[in-house]
């Protein structure tokens, strides 16, 4: 009996150890990038242009480019994803059609990001002749984050209790009035959580924009949606693997990695906080 107990204890500790090994790994990545990245961060690094092929200077155009791409992505994906979710939760009845939609959403969520890149290249860059541009990149990323936004929006809509709808309908509201006035306002914060998670993903992705939007160095900032852009993840990729003096410009790489990580994890963090706040505000 006693030896059995000791054996169990050992196994519990083993399980704990394995779990915390993952934690340690994550912490190591975060700390490593923080420690080596912080010294590279300066006002000039954030707001300056790259010099000597990115070996010196700043990363401002890359930050701005990522910002443009993300804004373009969300402007397209958020309304479409929200309307799609409204259709699925409020209008659709169980049918072959809705099952096909759900299947498509799952499929879309599993499509590798590089395949989105190929698709964007084939459709937006070549067939629609947008060229490699902010427009093509944003549309490609929008397709990619659509499932994230749909699923989060659906959850937010489902969290609004049924009686909110019944109460409004019983007062003579039409279906759309009910949704617009008595469901959406309460689902909106939850939908935004999904949008922020989507933004985080779009900001961090490299493969889709590699083929549809990104350039390593551009002498001027983009002036229209048909221009190519620099982007943080692509910038980091080139500095780390393609730069002739990759070893020597490690601080620049770490600095870029830190800015990117800060941006993406920061967005995730905001989404989590928002979710907690919403849950506290509306306890149905």
């Amino acid at each position: 009996m006693n030896s059995k107990r000791t054996g169990e204890k050992v196994i519990y500790w083993l399980m704990r150890g394995i779990t915390y090994l993952v934690v340690v790994f994550i912490a190591y990545i975060l700390i490593d990038i923080l420690i080596h990245g912080l010294p590279a961060i300066s006002w000039e690094f954030i707001t300056g242009d790259p010099e000597k092929s990115g070996a010196e200077g700043g990363i401002f155009p890359a930050i701005l480019g990522t910002l443009f791409l993300v804004i373009g992505t969300i402007v397209v994906a958020l309304p479409l994803g929200m309307f799609s979710a409204i259709y699925l939760t409020e209008y659709a009845r169980q049918s072959k059609f809705t099952q096909t939609i759900r299947m498509a959403i799952v499929t879309l969520a599993g499509v590798p990001s590089i395949v989105f890149g190929l698709f964007g290249l084939g459709l937006f860059v070549v067939a629609l002749d947008f060229g490699a541009s902010i427009l093509a990149g944003s549309l490609t990323l929008a397709c990619m984050i659509l499932p994230t936004i749909i699923v989060a929006s659906e959850e937010a809509l489902k969290a609004v209790p049924k009686y909110m709808r019944e109460g409004s309908l019983a007062l003579g509201a039409t279906k759309w009035e009910t949704i617009y006035k008595n469901v959406l306002p309460y689902a909106l914060p939850g939908m935004l959580t999904g949008a922020i998670l989507g933004i985080g993903r779009a900001a961090g992705e490299t493969a889709p924009i590699l083929l549809t939007a990104a350039a390593f160095f551009l002498p001027e900032l983009p002036s229209s949606v048909y221009d190519q852009v620099m982007a943080l993840p692509y910038h980091l990729y080139i500095l780390a693997t393609q730069h002739p003096e990759a070893q020597k410009i490690l601080p620049m790489q770490y600095g870029t990695a830190l800015v990117l990580l800060f941006l993406v994890i920061g967005l995730n963090f905001v989404a989590i906080i928002l979710r907690i706040k919403v849950r506290k505000k509306y306890k149905w």
């Binding site: 009686y163 019944e166 109460g167 309460y186």
Partner: peptide
């Protein structure tokens, strides 16, 4: 008009 079993004031 209708009154429901569980009171359902809107927030």
């Amino acid at each position: 008009g209708m009154i429901f079993q569980k009171s359902n004031p809107f927030p």
